[in-house]
Design a protein around this nucleic acid. Structure first.
Lengths: 232, 232
DNA sequence: CAGTATCCGATGCGATACTG
DNA sequence: CAGTATCGCATCGGATACTG
């Protein structure tokens, strides 16, 4: 977006790319389009990015008319959200993701496996509407192979809200999910089916039968999972 | 695409962006998808890029399975073309262009106006099939406001081929097109209609009546022209 | 013509620290 | 929590020259 990022061409592909193809920008848009609005929620989606750069990118997107912000009703800070113009980028980014899912090597290098990112993504896709409005559901995830302080996660569905935390919430656990980082990532990405993972002992579910049975109903996979070209 | 360009995320959007969102890459793909295959034809489409960087990008795209090359049947060098995987990027890039045409400010800064690029684009869209197979058609373009050595252009359609040149080809001229750089660019981009430009004396056609009449039939505008949101 | 090699400067961006 | 400011290095890529 800076001077040197310009292509000096009148072609609209070039002019769009100047805005959208700068480093991290597409990833930020993915997060915004997935529904994150708060600065630190966005950070969760791009943990490798420095906050100053995130801040800069958000300003640039605002400048380009793709993002708007409004002060938060309570507390300080802003809600960030895409404008109508930004929403029109949604199919482009989604299709790019499908392309990636189909054509980029589907093995993950070690530094791409990140339990925090994974759990954040998972949490966002939990189908809260499938849980009773009253009452509380608590799932405990144990991710073997993850660093100790990020091995155990709890997801709580309560009051039509999802919460992800790294501390035992104290409530009774309805479901235990046990896997390892690579397997759970592969499941999430559609590279390995839930059934296959269970059979191969890469995934184990225990606890309340009802939740085990309906696991694949409320535990949705990545939106790109279904485009994985493999046989599973 | 280098180490530092990686996002360290398993998300396919990120992994696709690592490949596709590096500087110039989208523009090169646009050129390839538009049908250019030779190194120097590609250069015509990205004149601001150094040949070494173009060469590097082509290698990277090859590495990523998006581009392939085959030795030219005559002469040295290679033909570059997109693989099937690369072709699947076509709708993404096209849609990105449409987005740009709709949402990026449609005024062009001076350094974006480039007669060479414009004529190269125009030449590529000439509908050769509308010209008799035998015989020759020659159009002379006069682009006022362009630097002296790139003011006069000739497009020759002959034998189902188009040729663009900067020297008078010697043959008789069938049609004279006169405009200025900004107006012709605006016409090409669909920002100003041919009719409107004629009325406002921003475009003048003279020569063989037959070719004047059918001008808009064989002189196609940019593929993005029809998406310009203005009233024209 | 069809690229490659080298050099070097600008700048993007990562790390860290800081503020209301 | 919600960002901003600063610093300094790595690297990207532009310019130029060179080769078969």
């Amino acid at each position: 977006m800076s001077k040197s990022q310009n292509y000096g061409q009148f072609c609209p592909v070039a002019r769009a790319a100047e805005i959208v193809a700068s480093r991290w920008t597409i990833i930020i848009l993915r997060e915004l389009l997935a529904g994150s609005t708060k600065f630190n929620d966005l950070r969760n989606g791009v943990p490798q990015m420095s906050p100053s750069l995130l801040s800069k990118r958000l300003s640039e997107l605002e400048e380009a008319g793709i993002v708007e912000k409004t002060p938060m009703t309570k507390g300080r800070g802003f809600h960030y959200f895409v404008t109508d113009s930004g929403k029109e980028l949604s199919p482009i980014i989604f299709t790019l993701g499908i392309w990636g899912q189909k054509h980029v090597l589907s093995e993950f290098s070690k530094h791409e496996l990140d339990p925090t990112l994974l759990m954040w993504d998972i949490q966002r896709r939990i189908q809260i509407l499938l849980f009773p409005e009253k009452g509380r559901f608590v799932a405990e995830f144990l991710i073997k192979g993850a660093p100790a302080e990020r091995r155990s996660w709890w997801i709580i569905v309560h009051d039509r809200n999802v919460e992800l935390c790294l501390q035992h919430p104290g409530h009774q656990i309805d479901l235990y999910i046990e896997s390892n980082l690579r397997s759970l990532t592969n499941i999430w990405m559609g590279i390995c089916s839930i059934e296959a993972a269970k059979k191969e002992k890469k995934l184990s579910l225990s606890g309340n039968d009802k939740y085990i049975k309906n696991f694949s109903k409320w535990f949705l996979l990545s939106p790109f999972a279904e485009y994985y070209p493999g046989q599973n």
